[in-house]
Nucleic acid binder design. Structure first.
Lengths: 321, 321
DNA sequence: CTGAAAGCGCTTACAG
DNA sequence: CTGAAAGCGCTTACAG
């Protein structure tokens, strides 16, 4: 038997007698043979590695508390999904450079939470590498290669829940960022309050010293003449600041103020009280993104974009448990 | 100029006229040339990729709160360190298999928090790949290829601090695990209490539903006839359970009970009150591990093992701020 | 100090 | 359906 036949049998190329193929597969399994990744890469141009590019903010410093569990779950699931397809998942550092990326030899990249004109996207694109984003890239409105949460439906679900728990004046706390889901959340909120004839109470806070800016923004909100009776906190890193502001202003949660978050996190789960939040299922997002990227590389058929439904985790902050 | 000369110039092999080398380097820089990773790998046997293997517990499920920021900082720093050396950092899934790992083609692996007989270590070793661990592997007492924190000194520093803040009966809460630092912490505590003629109050809790087991263990401690006036919490995931138990038993922190943690975390930083904790500098650990592994692969000289000093972050839980 | 040539282990036209 | 051969882009003995 020639190497050609073995190669064909293993890669489903050409025509191979089914019996021959079965034999090859059996022997290969028995020997635990794996094609040398470099030989394959050299010849085929495919490296068998996917890059994962977390947003810069995920470059945690000790004194910042970020929505880490989201990214950790995402990264872990992406590694598992890639591995199961015999692909390697390369974790790229927050700040990458063109030449370095070229030398790394990846087949494509998954960019998490892209900004418009995100350097991570352009770096990959300039090298001719396909990109799949997790959440939409507002800078490329025609791009369909993304996995996103159903921000509109999610936002409405949270607002409906708050309303059902008695809230009449629901404020929205959004981050000052150009990430896709932030503006989508804003739009959904806008539509919802219009449809429900509810007051429109929007306040924004800087992403960077997240907790502190959220604390101040919430203070402002609660100090106002007609304060809200509920706050929908869009970003995970704001949760703690909002809880602190509620306490500082003597608002009991959930009796006097309901709080719900748009992304689940340690902060939400371990808040005092624990905060109702949307579990966006980063594991499923990661799996879908890996699948989409690989299908794209293989010219296979995939649904794109893909939307991953979220689950609302009910907790004490909305009086639901 | 031949390809040989270029190759030699670029890799510092053979003898090349300094002028020739300078020319090569200049042109290469100008063209942004990078050697094809696969061609190099195929010929040299080196793949230019390092594997990072986080402990299985880092495979986060939504309902568990782990010491995520530690691992996230570690992973992020490892990626940056590897990238700066033109190496790729592959994130491996929590559960790996022999054949899959072989096909991935990595040059070596960094195993974080190894257990004795850790499958991650044996998998790599069986493939003949060098391993560097972060924290010691008690199953291989003669191994010197590790980066560790100075657990003995760290533990003493915390205990000294608690004593300086007035504690006379310091309890130790350790996880039930075979990770190296856990038993090292225990030993250090033992020596310290002996040297200081202090009571030995040790209680252990299961790692798995971390918060709950820590809560119960602390309850037991505080309910005892002669309860402690301080608790040294070895694991990050126990912090919240300990805080809850203190509150449940009506102990004010820090007035009636001092609390300090052996590893810094979101839970410690955002506790109520914030908890004094050791910042083990996972970034430095990661950098040292990457450096050690690469030096080993290149038969270079490195100090091994390496010990990374920690910084005690003083917070309200020990009345220090 | 420089260069021609072999060869790493695959995949892929191509011939049979 | 099967196989001999070329060639992917490097590195490395080896000859000069």
């Amino acid at each position: 038997m020639s190497v050609t036949t073995v190669s064909h049998a293993l890669n489903d190329k050409g025509r191979v007698d089914p019996a021959t193929r079965a034999l090859v597969v059996q022997v290969v399994r028995q020997l635990g043979y794996r094609a040398n990744r470099h030989a394959r890469g050299l010849r085929s141009g495919r490296s068998g590695a996917l890059a994962l590019l977390l947003p810069v903010q995920a470059d945690v410093r000790a004194d910042e508390a970020l929505s880490l569990d989201f990214y950790m779950r995402l990264a872990s699931a992406a590694a598992t999904a890639a591995f199961s397809q015999e692909q390697a998942l390369m974790l790229l550092p927050p700040r990458i450079v063109q030449t370095g990326l070229r030398g790394l030899g990846v087949d494509g990249g998954i960019v998490v939470d892209p900004s418009p004109l995100d350097p991570r996207v352009s770096l990959l694109t300039e090298l001719g590498l396909p990109v799949v984003t997790i959440e939409r890239d507002l800078g490329r409105p025609d791009d369909r290669w993304y996995v996103a949460s159903e921000t509109d439906a999610n936002t409405r679900q949270v607002l409906d829940h708050l309303a059902a728990q008695g809230a009449r004046r629901i404020a929205l706390l959004v981050p000052k960022t150009d990430w896709g889901w932030a503006s989508e959340t804003l739009n959904a909120y806008d539509s919802w309050v219009r449809e429900h004839d509810a007051p429109r109470l929007i306040v924004s806070a800087a992403m960077q010293p997240g907790e502190e800016s959220a604390f101040l923004a919430t203070q402002r909100l609660l100090d106002g003449r007609r304060p809200p009776d509920a706050v929908f906190v869009a970003a995970a890193r704001f949760v703690r600041g909002v809880l602190r502001a509620a306490k500082a202003n003597g608002r009991r949660v959930p009796e006097e103020l309901l709080i719900a978050a748009g992304v689940d996190s340690i902060q939400a789960r371990e808040g005092d009280p624990p905060v109702t939040a949307l579990d966006l299922h980063p594991e499923r997002q990661a799996e879908a993104a890996v699948e989409m990227l690989l299908a794209r590389l293989d010219d296979g058929q995939v649904e794109a974009p893909r939307h991953i439904p979220a689950t609302l985790r009910l907790r004490a902050s909305t009086g639901a448990v």
